[in-house]
């Protein structure tokens, strides 16, 4: 993402609330980054099969800000692109066979065993290719004691990754590092997918795609799409939740955004979201904030 606030809507900013799944994403540079001259190191990407139909992939990533991570904004961009590519192009065709009922147990097993390693490996391949095209400069120095092959170094690209794959049959959530996923029910009740907790994520330290054996730190949650499917899924980098005194105050964001979409329409929220995030960063964490939203509304909600 560039330094300017970015917003995107998967259904076009002119379209408004209606049936089917729609999307909005926004990414803003944190005020602390502006003060220090650091770029926005977050990234977001959304993929939708066609129109407002499922399947849908949402992804956000937060490149690390410390001095060693000189290319983390590139790493974050590759992370969200890799997530979309792997989930949409590699995983889905393998799972959704025409005229074949979906075996959800098999799907979950494939995701558990195969997905973390594939995402990490693909991301590593892509950033190493980037290094071959754009070798590290002398300024991008190695930490003392690091004797690794320069072309193999991943640290400068360090980033988190959060992704969601939403299909008619199941919802899959993937997370490596800090950040948040919220789901909002039709009545505004906010939940979090049942991802395993990671007590290591504290303060400014996080797990990362650039770590050795990073796939061990990938957390997955798999939910069959039965019963009350969420009306809104929100992915956010940690600059958002860190701007609130209490996690409950952050969770309120999910309900408020769904209510705003219903009350004011998609185009209005799409237009205002970057400014809301800038104001939130200024009064809160000071960090970059990136959000990807997927939501569906029903005909009686049309403004």
């Amino acid at each position: 993402m560039s330094g300017k606030p970015v917003a995107g809507s998967g259904s076009g900013s002119g379209s408004d609330i209606g049936t089917g799944w729609q999307t909005i994403c926004a990414s803003v540079r944190g005020v602390a980054h502006i003060r220090s001259g650091a770029p926005n190191q977050d990234a977001a990407r959304i993929w939708q099969a066609k129109g407002r139909s499922l399947p849908l992939v949402l992804a956000v990533a937060d490149g690390h800000g410390s001095a060693a991570y000189t290319r983390s904004h590139i790493g974050a961009a590759y992370a969200v692109n890799t997530a979309v590519r792997v989930l949409a192009r590699d995983l889905l065709p393998r799972l959704l066979t025409p005229n074949q009922p979906l075996d959800l147990i098999l799907v979950k097993r494939i995701c558990d065993e195969w997905l973390p390693k594939l995402v990490v490996r693909r991301w590593q391949e892509r950033v190493r290719n980037y290094t071959r095209r754009y070798p590290f400069s002398p300024e991008e120095s190695r930490p003392p004691g690091d004797e690794s092959d320069t072309s193999e170094r991943l640290t400068p690209y360090g980033t988190t990754l959060i992704a969601a794959l939403i299909t008619e049959q199941f919802h899959l959530y993937l997370q490596l590092g800090d950040g948040d996923i919220l789901t909002v029910a039709d009545d505004g009740t906010v939940s979090r997918p049942p991802l395993p907790t990671d007590a290591r994520l504290l303060g400014n330290e996080t797990t990362s795609l650039c770590m050795a054996e990073a796939w061990h730190s990938v957390r997955l949650a798999f939910q069959p799409a039965v019963g009350d499917v969420p009306s809104l899924v929100l992915l956010a980098t940690d600059g958002y939740t860190n701007s609130f005194a209490d996690p409950v105050f952050f969770e309120q964001v999910g309900a408020d955004l769904l209510a705003a979409i219903r009350a004011e329409g998609v185009a209005s929220v799409h237009e205002q979201l970057p400014d809301w995030l800038v104001q939130t960063s200024a009064a809160g964490s000071g960090d970059d904030i990136t959000v990807a939203l997927g939501f569906h509304a029903f005909p009686d909600m049309v403004k």
């Binding site: 690390h64 410390s66 330290e205």
Partner: peptide, 9 residues
């Protein structure tokens, strides 16, 4: 204003 970093770094 600590920037984020990995656990092992």
């Amino acid at each position: 204003s600590p920037a984020s970093q990995t656990l092992d770094s």
